[in-house]
Structures are given as C-alpha cells and as structure tokens.
Simulated assay, not measured.
Amino acid sequence: MRRSGMLAALTLVLVAPACGSGGDSGSTATPQVVTSAAQAPPSPDASGAAVCAARGELESSVASLRGLDLGTAGAAGLVTAAQQVHQDLDALSAAASAEYRPTISALRASLAALSGTASGLTDKESVKAAMPELTAQVAAVSASWAALRRQLDNRCG
C-alpha cells in the first residue's frame, strides 16, 4: 500500500508540469510538488453552478456598461447601467466562496467610484465635463472585472 502511495505522489510530480498553462515552448518545465487538493478541479455542485450563472450575468452587465454611449444614454443611462452591475455583483458575491472576496471587493470599490461620479451628473453638459474622469473610472471597472473574470474562469471555464 505504501508503494502505491509513493507512486501516486511521483506521478503528480511528473504529470503536474504538463498540465500547467502554456508558455515559452523553448523553455523546460520545472517539476513542482502539488497536493491533490490544489490539483482537484472545482466540483460541479449547485453552488458552483450558481457562481457560474452569476458570472455570466455580471459579464453581460459589465459589457453593457463598457459599451454605453454616454452622449446618448446620458447620466440616467450611466446610473442605470452601474446599478445593474451592482445587482449582478451582489448576486455573484452571495454565491461565491471567500476565495473570491478580495477581487469582488476590488470591483466593488471601482464601481463605487464610478457610481459616485455618475450620481452627481445632472445633464449632458455635466457628463461632457466629467468625461475624462468617467473614462478612467470605467477603465478601472473593466480592469477589476478582468481580474475577477480570470479567477472565475478557473471554476467556470
């Protein structure tokens, strides 16, 4: 029995580098010892399905926010789009485990900054005046979402 346990551990050491992400094809992989818990793929349980469903909704609302034409939508359209992202982020946060909390918090912070600016806009002129700030804040939301999406891709594919 002990021999089979050692064989399984050796197999992990030898096979784990082959399962890593792509990289420079000219470099050689350095074997790393990885525990089976770190190697185990996420379980396809109901909470995982809820996280992945919430991820899809959040991805859609962030895309809508990023694609918003502020000249047409105005301040009200921006506020509505930001509120939808907030709702979808809340749903994801409720379904997600603690491992996602830091990246969820980062997205929540960048979204709060955008929402704060948007709530102070009253007309097209105020939107126009705030455009540089809004552009930077939407970029921050996009960057925060990209980090969270990469993390969620490990679970949802």
Rank of each mutant, 00 (worst) to 15 (best):
A91T: 14
S4D: 10
P102E: 09
A81F: 05
S97M: 12
R101P: 01
S110D: 13
R150S: 15
S142D: 06
G74Y: 01
A112K: 10
A147G: 09
G71T: 01
G67V: 00
L7I: 11
R66W: 01
V141I: 04
T80L: 14
D24C: 11
E133A: 13
L14S: 11
S126F: 03
P17H: 14
T122N: 12
G120T: 04
M131P: 00
V33G: 03
V15Q: 13
S36R: 10
L65Y: 07
H86L: 12
S64L: 04
S93F: 11
D153Y: 03
L114N: 05
A54W: 06
A9N: 01
E125F: 04
V33H: 00
E125D: 08
T28H: 07
L78R: 03
P132E: 05
Q151T: 08
T117P: 03
D153E: 14
S47F: 12
A9I: 01
S144D: 12
A118K: 09
S36V: 10
S126V: 00
L107C: 13
P31A: 12
M131T: 08
V85W: 04
R150P: 04
C156W: 01
A94L: 14
A94N: 14
A140Q: 10
L7E: 13
A98V: 09
G23R: 11
A98M: 10
L114F: 07
A81E: 05
A113D: 08
G67H: 06
L111E: 09
A73Q: 01
L152W: 05
G74E: 00
E57W: 03
T30E: 05
P42W: 06
W145R: 02
H86I: 08
L148G: 09
D88P: 07
A75R: 03
A49M: 07
A73K: 00
G26A: 11
P132Y: 04
A112M: 08
A54R: 02
L10H: 09
A82C: 10
G22T: 11
A130R: 05
V127S: 02
T117W: 06
G26M: 04
S105I: 00
V127F: 02
A37T: 09
L148P: 03
S25W: 02
A37Y: 05
R108H: 14
R66Y: 02
S142L: 00
S25H: 06
R55Y: 11
L89H: 13
A50L: 10
A73C: 00
S47K: 15
R155W: 13
R149I: 01
S142V: 00
A109F: 08
S4G: 02
Q39E: 13
D123E: 03
S115F: 11
D88H: 13
A53V: 00
C156S: 03
S4M: 09
D88K: 14
L68M: 06
T72S: 09
A129M: 03
A98E: 10
R55L: 07
T117R: 13
A139G: 04
S43M: 13
S126A: 09
Y100R: 15
A96L: 12
W145Y: 12
L12M: 13
A136W: 00
T117Q: 10
A8Y: 07
Q32K: 07
A53F: 02
A18D: 11
L58P: 02
A53D: 05
S110M: 07
S43K: 14
S47N: 15
S126N: 04
S4T: 08
A18G: 14
P132H: 07
